[in-house]
């Protein structure tokens, strides 16, 4: 465990040959270096590391920062309605997603759906949904259904369904379900087994992820308004646009408090449900 204690041997010991790890190490190291260098080449789309620009911006930035540190408390009343909308979206979105996630998860897990074709299809759709970032969904949905809470809600539902179905179906896959063999031996259909046994047995897995989705929703719905999908993000974006950093800092603090409160509440609930 502690190769550091090996000192130069006084007598010549008959050492077995050291395993040759350096070719592989060199290969991995140079691959990583090459990749990193490539990400810093502006000519092919990489990033130009320009510390001078930041230094130049710093005076301007310092002023902004000090404005951010002086919250404008008189702005609080205007934030309450949008904050409420944010919470409503988060909660309703999580609830709709919870309802949708049950059949989809049972479809996507091997013990509850032995049919390879439908299982693979559901998983593929879920993976595609998950590969699109939340704010990208919101941007496109706003363009499709118009500004408001509806595209925000749809974004949250898509995001939650993706995360719950993936995590819970993987958890179901990785646990043993001997009771399903017993039910199968008793002549039960897959649907009946899932409903009567697999679902109640997996409910803690579900409720855990539902709560997690609710926590994430509060954080996401706070920013959805930036692209016009409702909630407090719209106000945040507007205040940023007016350089009203005192108002911005109030909104950020509120989001911080609400997120921490929701996390604390869901931790309490989790312990009670366990």
């Amino acid at each position: 465990m502690s190769p550091g204690t090996t000192t130069e041997p006084a007598t010549r010991l008959d050492l077995p040959p050291r395993p040759r790890t350096w070719p592989r190490r060199t290969l991995v190291f140079s691959a990583l270096t090459a990749f990193t260098v490539a990400t810093c080449l502006p000519a092919i789309g990489g990033i130009e590391i320009d510390l001078a620009a930041i230094a130049q911006n710093w005076r301007h930035g310092a002023a902004n920062l000090s404005a951010l540190l002086q919250p404008n408390w008189s702005f609080v009343p205007r934030t309450i309605q949008p904050m409420l909308e944010t919470l409503q979206m988060a909660f309703v979105g999580a609830a709709i997603a919870a309802a949708l996630s049950v059949p989809l998860t049972l479809w996507a897990a091997r013990p509850t759906n032995p049919n390879t074709v439908t299982r693979t299809a559901v998983r593929a759709v879920i993976n595609v949904v998950r590969a699109v970032p939340d704010l990208v969904w919101a941007t496109i949905l706003v363009a499709m259904v118009g500004v408001g809470a509806l595209p925000g809600l749809l974004t949250l539902v898509l995001f939650d369904v993706g995360i719950v179905v993936k995590l819970v179906s993987e958890a179901i896959d990785s646990t043993d379900h001997p009771y399903l063999e017993a039910a199968r031996a008793g002549g039960a259909t897959q649907g009946r087994m899932n409903r009567a046994l697999a679902l109640p047995q997996s409910l803690p897995l579900f409720s855990n992820q539902w709560l997690y989705a609710l926590e994430l929703n509060v954080r996401i719905s706070a920013i959805l308004g930036i692209v016009g999908a409702g909630g407090i993000g719209r106000l945040l974006d507007e205040r940023f646009g007016f350089f009203a950093y005192g108002d911005v800092s109030v909104i950020i603090l509120e989001i911080l408090v609400v997120v921490l409160l929701i996390e604390a509440a869901s931790n309490v609930l989790r312990r009670r449900l366990a």
């Binding site: 911006n57 710093w58 930035g61 310092a62 902004n64 920062l65 951010l68 704010l135 954080r219 996401i220 706070a222 920013i223 930036i226 945040l236 940023f240 950093y245 911005v248 950020i252 989001i255 911080l256 997120v259 921490l260 996390e263």
Partner: peptide, 14 residues
């Protein structure tokens, strides 16, 4: 606790 986008927005103003 603060959404990443908001941290980014704040940093970007600086």
């Amino acid at each position: 606790a603060v959404p990443e986008v908001i941290i980014a927005l704040v940093l970007l103003t600086v």
